[in-house]
Amino acid sequence: MEIGELERMARQIRLRDLQAVYEAGAGHIGGEMSVIDVLTALYFRVLRLWPDQPKNPARDRFVLSKGHTACALYVTLAKRGFIPEEEISTFLKPYSRLNGHPNCNKVPGVETNTGPLGHGLPVAVGMAKAAQLSGADYHTYVITGDGEMQEGSNWEAIMAAAQFKLNNLTLIIDHNRFQQGASLSDTNDIAPLRPKLEAFGWEVTEIDGNKMSEVVPALEFRGDRPHCIVAHTNKGHGISFMQDRVDWHHKVPNKEQYEIAVAELSEALS
C-alpha cells in the first residue's frame, strides 16, 4: 500500500476500534488511537506475512508488548484477513477468543501472550536471536508503550540485543507521554528516550508516529545494530476531545461522545 492508502486504512481501523470499545463498554482507546498508524504500516506494507499461513517459518515476527491495546490489533488482523471482520463484535464477550489481551494459542497472527508489561521485548530479542542462529532472514518488530519502558525487564533485553548484535530487530516505543494514571513526566520521567537507547548501543530514529510518511521509512530502515524508533504520538489521536487527555487511557465514550468521535473519523475518511 502507498502512503495515502495506508492513511485511509488507519482511519478505518480507528473507526472500527472505536465502535468495538463503545459496544463492549471497555477497552484502552487512548493507547489504541496512538499506535494504530504504526500497526497499519506494519500489517499493510512492511511485514512479510501470509494470513492463510500464520505459522509460516519465514514470516516476519511482530509482538504487541503493550497488550492492553489488543482491540486495535484484532481490528488490524481482521482487516488483513487473519480473522473474520464480523468476529470483532465478540470482543470481551464470554468465550470470545478476543479477550482484553492477545492470546497466541487462540488468535492467528499473535506470536506470544502479552498483557503484563515488560514481556514483549525480551521475547522479541529471543525471536531475533533465533533467526541469527538459524540464518533465517525474517525481521522482528515489537511495540512497547513509553510508560512500559519503566519495567526493568526491558532494559535487560535492550542490553542483550546490543550484546547479540541483533540487526534484525526493531523496537517501536509508542511515546504518547501518558500512562494509566498520569503523564509520564509526572510519574517516572524516562524521557528523553533517545540518549538512553543510544547509550545502550542501539541505533535510534525519532519520528512523528502518527504521520504515515515518517512511519513507513522508519520501519523499513535496516542498519547494523538493533534499531529503536521513538514514535512521538498522541494518546487518543484522531479524536479531538480524547487527544492528550490522561483520562482516556481506558475510559469508554458515552453515546454523545461516541457520535462526535464517529463523525470526526468519518469526516477524515471522506
Binding site: H119, P122, V125, G126, M127, K129, S153
Partner: peptide, 10 residues
C-alpha cells in the same frame, strides 16, 4: 522471555 522467543523462532 528470550527462551520463549527462541522457541517461537524454531
Amino acid at each position: 522471555g528470550v527462551a520463549a522467543g527462541l522457541a517461537n523462532g524454531g
